[in-house]
Every structure is written in structure tokens, then in C-alpha cells.
Design a protein around this nucleic acid. Sequence first.
DNA 1: CCCTGATTCGC
DNA 2: GCGAATCAGG
Length: 178
Amino acid sequence: MEAGLSWTDERVALLRRLWEDGQSASKIAAQLGGVTRNAVIGKVHRLGLGGRAKAAEDGQPLARTQPAQEIEAAIAVVEAEAPEPVAIVTHRPAPDFPIPASPPAPAEPVALAVSQRVTIMDLRESMCRWPLGDPTTPEFRFCGARSITGLPYCTHHAEIAYQPAAERKRDRRVAGFR
DNA sequence: CCCTGATTCGC
DNA sequence: GCGAATCAGG
């Protein structure tokens, strides 16, 4: 996949998604990889975009949790890839999702029996969509383990994403972003 | 000086 | 069509 970078349908779909989300050109460029912000801006104009929900110009990007954005971006790509409209899971993570930018722990001894790590290109409907790493880098991956049927996550990450309110209120969100 | 998008124009 | 260089602005 790291072959000839160009404006493939997938990359254009991701570009559209992120741009309309209010992401800056430089951030989009970083996320796409292999292109500069100028390239992104140029493409945006050629696509006839250009106007979007102003809010990120000098303020913050439109809210929404980070994971939600990555997941939506992934879904956008998956949709672009799919030959025909398949039933796509449009789950929204819990409001108080763990923060991706600063993982609880730097690294752990890899006790992960469930984690293949896949890029956006290899992510399939049956795979866990849990984001791993910094989405602004090319190293960004998804968990990729077998997801629970009907849910976007594997058993492990589903536990984190769907914490019962009862347990959650007593900060039981140790599992963090791994 | 950091960043933002907009425009131009050689390729 | 593409994107570096450049411009204008915060």
C-alpha cells in the first residue's frame, strides 16, 4: 500500500472527510502521508471544496472525541472501497473516551494475545476498529483483532469502550489506549 | 515565528 | 492534474 502515493479514491475520500471535519490542511497532509499541506490545499480546491464548517480557522477543530474521528475516517475509506454499500457500523464511542495523544503507559510487555495491528487499508468489517497510536502519523494502526459480531471492537477493546456507568464512575478506565 | 488557507504557474 | 512557491492573514 505504501507504493505510489497519489490521489486514489481512498485518499480523496479521507481528504474530503477530514477537510469537512474542519481539520487543517497540514494535519490532513500528515495523516495522509506523502503529501504536503500545499498539495492538500491544492487538491481541495481542484475538488471544488474549499468552503467548510468554519470553526477550525483560529479556534479548535469541531469537537467530537479523537477516536470518533478516526473511526469515522476509517469508515469513510471502507465505504469508498466497498464495491457496494455494505452495512457499516456507525457506533459512537463513549463520551469520556481515553485520550489517544497520551497513552496511560509508554509500552507494555506485549501480553496482547489479541492484536494484529492493521492499517486503514487492511481494516475489514469483521476487524476491531480500535485506534492505536497517533493518527497524525503513518504509523497509525487499528487493533484489527476479530471483532465481536455486530460491534466494531474485539472483546478486549469492547470492554474499554462500553464500560458500564456503574463501574465507570469509580475511575476504572485503566485499560487506556493500547 | 508559529500557524492558517488562497493563488499562481511551471511541470 | 499536481504541488512548490508565494502571498495574505491570524
